[in-house]
Deep mutational scan, measured.
Amino acid sequence: MKHYEVEILDAKTREKLCFLDKVEPHATIAEIKNLFTKTHPQWYPARQSLRLDPKGKSLKDEDVLQKLPVGTTATLYFRDLGAQISWVTVFLTEYAGPLFIYLLFYFRVPFIYGHKYDFTSSRHTVVHLACICHSFHYIKRLLETLFVHRFSHGTMPLRNIFKNCTYYWGFAAWMAYYINHPLYTPPTYGAQQVKLALAIFVICQLGNFSIHMALRDLRPAGSKTRKIPYPTKNPFTWLFLLVSCPNYTYEVGSWIGFAIMTQCLPVALFSLVGFTQMTIWAKGKHRSYLKEFRDYPPLRMPIIPFLL
């Protein structure tokens, strides 16, 4: 059985960083990364991007050496992705923050609204209902991160945790300040508006959870398998008939419901920014589905049925 020789060059300087002799033909890129780490321990596998061309796409960890368009002496180019952190850690951090930050404003801890309001309670029912909904949303997200989601990528750049936390924590503080303010004004149409908004919120939260469970069942634990998601017997998953990412559709719907319930401008802005970002993600995933699966359902749109 022939063996391969693998040289790894710096993608920027073309400097030879490592030479691997007698590499098995069936070795994966993940195994080559581990061998590279032995000579350069500062670059652990998650930091490494190996590619066939200095400006090309990163090879997948599961790619097999003998199936790549290389000879028995293969040249790979290395790029440092920077310090990495696990997706689970990032999600837990960015979701735990809003949960606790919101509660600080809800309980009106000292130095927020003035001494005479310390630890007082709002007289408006919608304020307490909003706290329950907000807390439920982020507790749900935390539990899904721990027990439901299966991540195709193990890590992301460390800098992302600061960007994500600034976004989630900042908006949580902004909306919580106004919703729990002693001078907060309840919704214009009173109980009817709150009940309608609560119904929207609850339905969308159930829908979002149902989609996450359906997506989880598509991917076996520990794998990166991708399949076309289809509706199940659960009615909340029937939205798969019309959109590629109904989890985002339901998520946006939840925040629209919360915005109607609280009639709070920061919540509306958070919903708008979230919708914009999720639309970008949904379009990317939709394109990926179309590219990977020739039999992908043609009627589906990325996030909004028939429109977007």
Score class of each variant (00 low, 15 high):
N208H: 07
E5R: 05
Y248L: 15
R141G: 01
K22Q: 05
T276S: 10
L59E: 00
V252A: 11
G97V: 08
T93Y: 01
K227Q: 14
A27V: 10
E251H: 00
E251P: 02
A30F: 13
Y296C: 04
G56H: 15
I8D: 04
S49F: 06
W174F: 12
I228H: 15
Q42W: 10
W174L: 06
R47Y: 04
I304F: 10
K60R: 11
V148S: 13
F19R: 12
P266H: 06
A96S: 06
V148M: 07
Y230W: 02
E15G: 09
Y296K: 00
E31I: 13
Y248R: 15
K224V: 07
P186S: 12
F119P: 14
D53E: 08
K12C: 06
S254Q: 02
I32T: 11
I29P: 08
F100G: 13
K140M: 07
S121F: 12
F236Y: 09
A268P: 05
F306G: 01
D217Y: 03
F258H: 13
F78V: 11
V6S: 06
Q193I: 00
I304H: 02
S121V: 01
G253L: 12
L143V: 01
A46W: 01
E7L: 02
Y289C: 08
T262A: 10
V126G: 04
V88A: 11
S254D: 01
L52W: 10
Q192A: 13
F105P: 05
R226W: 09
F151L: 10
H40W: 03
G284A: 12
C264N: 09
T249N: 08
Y189L: 02
S244Y: 03
W43R: 10
F240I: 11
W238G: 04
L81T: 15
T93P: 13
I161G: 15
C131V: 00
H137L: 08
A191P: 11
R150C: 09
E24A: 00
K285Q: 10
S288C: 09
H40C: 06
F171L: 07
W238Q: 03
T13C: 14
I303R: 02
N164C: 03
Q48C: 03
Q205N: 12
Y178K: 01
H149Y: 02
T39V: 03
S244F: 03
E7F: 13
R108A: 00
V88H: 02
I132K: 13
Y289V: 00
S271C: 09
I161A: 14
V127F: 07
T155P: 08
Q277W: 13
S86V: 12
A30W: 13
V252W: 15
L299F: 15
Y177D: 07
K116R: 10
H153K: 00
K163M: 04
N34M: 05
A199G: 12
F162C: 13
L59R: 09
L20T: 13
M261P: 01
K57V: 13
G257I: 00
E62V: 01
I8N: 01
L20S: 12
V64L: 13
I29V: 11
E251Y: 14
S223T: 00
I101S: 07
P98R: 03
V243R: 02
L52R: 12
F209C: 12
D61T: 01
F111C: 02
P302D: 14
T262W: 02
Q277E: 13
L290D: 14
M156T: 06
Y44T: 10
G257A: 14
T185D: 13
T13S: 09
D10G: 10
T232Q: 02
F258T: 14
E144K: 01
L183Y: 15
T37N: 05
